[in-house]
Nucleic acid binder design. Structure first.
Lengths: 188, 188, 188, 188
DNA sequence: TATGAATGAGTATTCATTCAT
DNA sequence: CATGAATGAATACTCATTCAT
């Protein structure tokens, strides 16, 4: 990704996160990137192409980082904890990207169906970790697929919390508390 | 709300949930409601007005139903369980409304800021229930505000699960399992 | 003209004078008249019909008043003076009506062509008075038709003056001064 | 002003003069200019912006031409005559522009209030010439401000005359006669 | 590689008019 | 006589996309 393309990429994330896919205009993106509108079309075929590019790049980064973080951990419980931690950190490090995803998850447009597939794929990955832990008796037996969604839902909690109480919380505290809730629940 | 207004209201929820706020057109809404476009403007000042109306009506329904369900329950743990249950049921009964909310939660448009305020208000209500339960030692001590977001995040899990695996799950099972996760965690 | 029709008539003059023909809406007129929109259509066939009615009623009033004022005056110079005076008074008494006329005089819409015909007719009336005075050697010989327009232009001066310096001037002074200018010019 | 912008500018004057501000459509203007509708918005922010641009450009032209014509004339009476002459010529050369002004002078819309301010400013300029001539005893003593409106009203006479008797009159004759009326009146 | 003027299909909104009550 | 809900054609304005430079 050269410099111009990168600045378009980053501007698009910012603009999509502020205005949503349909609300964002190519003018907004070009202005924010500091390039002429025509330049967008030199680097991307269309608005939708930019969107898809953002999603696929973003998902790749997440997948890689999760893999890297977990690869050397042997203990399955630690693995889950690390998984939680890295996921939540990523939400905080890529707020705008997550906002784009969250807002585009719903709906029946093609790009949205593709995004859902992409997330579905990702959740199936989490599921694998959960099944491992189940097999070893670390976590409750149950439908791993469903549990994976709960896991994913936690990201949402964190994102909404951050969205509404912008920057007020302490990242470390939020992450540790959430991991606690996921594993042990809130009951005393 | 007279008949015409109601059919506009319901169509708008459907269309907004399929296409998002900006993606939805007034033509879509009118066609779906079976009225002429001008009729939309006879009953609502603007597209944004329709949106706001949907949100405020929807939130009222939720608030009322939650209150009704919980009012006669004395035991604080039962109260939390009922709270969970009713919330999740509402997600399933008003899928489209929730999709609209979820997709419009993000972003910086006025309507979105207002929606966030509205949800913030609702979460503060949940917080009150949690504080009660904390005081009575039923649930872990901690920042009730933050815990309320976790609670809310569960709705999201359920919504995404339902969204991706459309109708495949058994509502009762989903609800009971989720309540279990929230209270006791996933750890064995 | 019954009470309802009259209030529509007067509201229409007011609204047309504030917003012009195209800028005025039937809603504006109805609201200002304190009746429902449908009521306008009970009394008038269309917006254009209201406009035409206003113009024809207005011109009638002017014609009558001018005639009445001049009928008993024998001396042709006095006649001209009276003519000036009454015309100018009418401008001041029917500001809104004149604004409607002035703004609709231009353009190529049917209603505007008709209005121009109407005014042309009126100016030809003035011309008759001028020809009388010319014949008797009271005023300069010349093309009476053209002189009549000058006469009419004076109304415009007065109207613009009043429009820009709203109500500041003394009516009597304005009228007397203008008559002086018309008859004797501004040269010392 | 580049070529495209200029053709939009000229079309707008034509269309506004035929149909008035509200009656004119952007489609009309675009078609007349031979450009796509979007092109109007590439060069002007809105319909109102086009209007304001026309007025300010038009007033500038008038101001400049009047100044140029008068600057070398020393004799104050000649100055007034030239002033009359140039003003009247401008009316004839810019018929459409004047029609736009005349029709938009009335009413209470923002653009109209601004137009009135603009004209008020212009009339104050005329007033200066009149005051000079008054000081030198060339014209009658009196309220110069008011006299300036009379002067301006003459433009109106000429415009209406031209409007109703399209092109029939001889420009030179009309101008000379009007100057005569203004300075010496119509009385014999 | 990058630009920005030009496009035209699409969109929210307005408003004169109709009509059943 | 009077109403006001409903209409749909018309209108200002937007914006993704194209293309000549």
């Amino acid at each position: 990704m050269n410099k111009t393309k990168k600045s378009i990429f980053q501007s698009a994330i910012k603009i999509f996160s502020d205005k949503g896919y349909d609300g964002a205009t190519m003018d907004d993106i070009a202005a924010n990137a500091g390039v002429a509108k025509g330049t967008l079309y030199y680097h991307f075929k269309s608005k939708e192409e930019i969107f898809k590019y953002i999603i696929s790049e973003g998902m790749n980064v997440i997948r890689e980082q999760v893999e890297d973080a977990v690869v050397d951990v042997k203990n399955p419980l630690d693995k889950l904890k690390i998984l939680c931690k890295i996921q939540l950190s990523l939400v905080y490090q890529n707020r705008d990207f997550f906002k784009v995803m969250m807002s585009q998850l719903w709906g029946k447009e093609l790009r949205q169906l593709e995004l859902r597939d992409s997330i579905h794929e990702y959740i199936k990955n989490i599921q694998v970790y959960l099944e491992e832990a189940m097999d070893q008796g670390i976590i409750k037996k149950g439908e791993a697929s469903f549990m994976a969604y709960t896991f994913f839902g936690t990201l949402f909690s964190a994102a909404v919390y951050e969205l509404i109480n912008e920057g007020k919380g302490d990242l470390e505290y939020v992450i540790d508390t959430l991991i606690g809730y996921i594993l042990e629940g809130i009951e005393a």
